[in-house]
Simulated assay, not measured.
Amino acid sequence: MVIIVLVRHGESTANVGGVLAGRTPGVVLTEAGRTQARGLGGVFPCREVTELRYSPLERCAQTTGELLEGITAARITEAPEFLEVDYGRWSGRTIPELAKLPEWEIVQQRPSQVAFPDGERLADAAARAVAGVRAFVADLQDSGAEAPVGVVVAHGDIIKAVLADALGMPLDDFQRIAVAPGSFSQIVYPSPGPGTGAPTVTAMSVTAPTPRGARTGEAGTLGGGV
């Protein structure tokens, strides 16, 4: 059995502005986002983890640093397979602005068919994220740890895609999932072998108490909910 804890980065400057950040440089955590990430260590399901892998974007690196104030990881690895979706020319635009585009209905109803202009197909981003988690699970199974726990620090749509896969949902239904900034979700993957069953989602979008209150993510947005 392997436990994977999926952490969405804390509130970022783009979240506050209602902007679809994508891979735009210079997007960092707000002070509230740092507080969220630091507080997450206090409600985390385990204090010691086998390995932590994080998206190279600055907001995820910052979240990793804050989270590691409350937990310890035997190994820490930058993992480009968990990079944010490349939204191409949609990057840097506001969600209300994007919601007026005719393509927005496809994002909501048939996300597996979406190809962002000069960017990435959402289906390709989901596939690399799911493959990345499965490879991580295999590495942890081979690590020799008695009860391995892996942490992935990533982005809303990346985490939603992994959760949808674990739940047996088609990608076209992944907008039914919201993942709050500064939250964790947890999946238990069974040991390999016949009759071991499917992954089990045991927690979703759990946040630590903050002065501003818990956030649940917003429905019907890209990026997992701002």
Rank of each mutant, 00 (worst) to 15 (best):
L122I: 11
D86R: 04
C46R: 13
L222Q: 11
V28C: 06
S191R: 14
G156M: 11
T200A: 15
L167Q: 12
P181I: 08
A198P: 04
Y54S: 12
A154C: 11
G70S: 05
E97M: 04
T202D: 03
Q113A: 14
T30H: 03
H9T: 06
R121I: 07
P170A: 12
S205M: 08
V49Q: 08
T216G: 15
P45A: 01
Y189D: 04
F136G: 12
E31W: 10
G168W: 09
G39R: 07
V2R: 02
G41R: 11
T63M: 03
R212P: 03
H9D: 05
A166M: 10
S55H: 11
T50L: 12
G22C: 11
E146S: 14
V149P: 00
L57F: 13
L163P: 00
T221E: 11
G26Q: 14
C60S: 00
F82H: 14
A74W: 09
G213D: 12
L29W: 01
I4G: 05
E97Q: 14
P192L: 15
M204W: 13
L52D: 05
A203N: 10
E58F: 03
R121T: 08
E66H: 14
R93E: 13
L98V: 10
D142T: 12
D157S: 05
G22T: 02
V27E: 09
D172H: 05
L101N: 12
V226M: 09
E48C: 07
N15T: 07
V16H: 08
V5L: 13
Q62P: 09
L140S: 01
I4C: 05
V7A: 03
